[in-house]
Design a protein around this nucleic acid. Structure first.
Length: 257
DNA sequence: GTAGGGTTAAGT
DNA sequence: ACTTAACCCTAC
């Protein structure tokens, strides 16, 4: 009638994302009532928040555009012997707060300097506190929000589609990616790490374009270094995870593996 | 109150 | 015609 569809504004979207970081996904009512977000989200119900978050998460993880096959994906919680679609990183149950303050009551001054991509991933895993590891989309979403990196469609589409091996990434990516998905041959850990690395590269490019300040160049250089070490880390994680080993976040943080 | 499934409008 | 996103309904 009056307003058939009320599209989400970027302000609302950001408020939702920040709310999820603040209170966690699932606390829709809490987020909606939070004085920090309620002015922005006043016209949205908790159901709306949930639905919007579902859309965000889904579009970030898997696009149904290429494949008509619905990937029977995000629900294999316990009984999968082979690598599940989730990271095999396990958070240590007791002490996992080494890099990030869990909550800030006010607004947290984001760092002036560029954080390392490794710490960004670890921070995400730590903050999300998923006992069985976190989905790639969730991690990337966290990083994107927390670090104010915009990588909406660019990384996500490439992250899970045509990426397996640099040697054969050229041709029939559609076919082989479909086959790889069906067979479950893709490594989730490598996926996550490469997606994150891609994200850094993307942020690098974007920040280079967006900012004409010379200081950016230094930051980008630093990011490039960090990316290298991230890929190193990714390889090791992939090795370990593909052997079915579980690593605690502290082990990863201190490279004790 | 939340999660998930289903429906429908809008965009391409 | 197909995909995406907002909305609605129902079960837990």
């Amino acid at each position: 009638m009056g307003a058939p569809k009320q599209k989400w504004t970027s302000e609302e979207e950001e408020a939702l994302r920040r709310g999820v970081l603040k209170h966690g996904a699932g606390k829709w009512r809490t987020i909606q009532k939070d004085p920090e977000f309620s002015p922005v989200l006043s016209s949205r119900s908790n159901i709306d928040l949930k639905d919007k978050w579902r859309n965000l998460s889904f579009s970030a993880s898997g696009l149904g555009s290429r494949d008509k096959l619905r990937v029977p994906r995000p629900k294999a919680p316990s009984s999968s012997p082979s690598p599940s679609p989730q990271l095999l990183l396990l958070s240590a149950p007791n002490n996992v707060a080494e890099a990030s303050p869990p909550e800030d009551c006010e607004k947290s001054p984001q760092d002036d300097k560029t954080p390392s991509p490794n710490s960004m991933i670890l921070e995400a895993l730590d903050e999300l506190k998923e006992p069985n590891g976190s989905e790639v989309a969730t991690i990337c979403n966290f990083i994107e929000i927390d670090k104010s990196y915009k990588l909406t469609d660019s990384y996500a589409k490439r992250a899970l589609a045509p990426m397996k091996d640099p040697s054969l990434k050229k041709k029939d990516s559609a076919k082989s990616s479909k086959a790889a998905k069906g067979l479950g041959q893709l490594s989730p850990a490598l996926d996550a790490a490469e997606a994150a690395a891609m994200k850094v590269a993307d942020a690098e490019a974007k920040s280079h374009l967006a900012n004409e300040h010379m200081m950016e160049v230094e930051r980008i250089g630093k990011m490039a270094e960090e990316t290298e070490s991230l890929l190193e880390l990714a390889s090791e994680l992939y090795e370990r995870c593909s052997r079915g080993e579980a690593l605690t976040i502290l082990q990863v943080a201190h490279r004790e593996f």
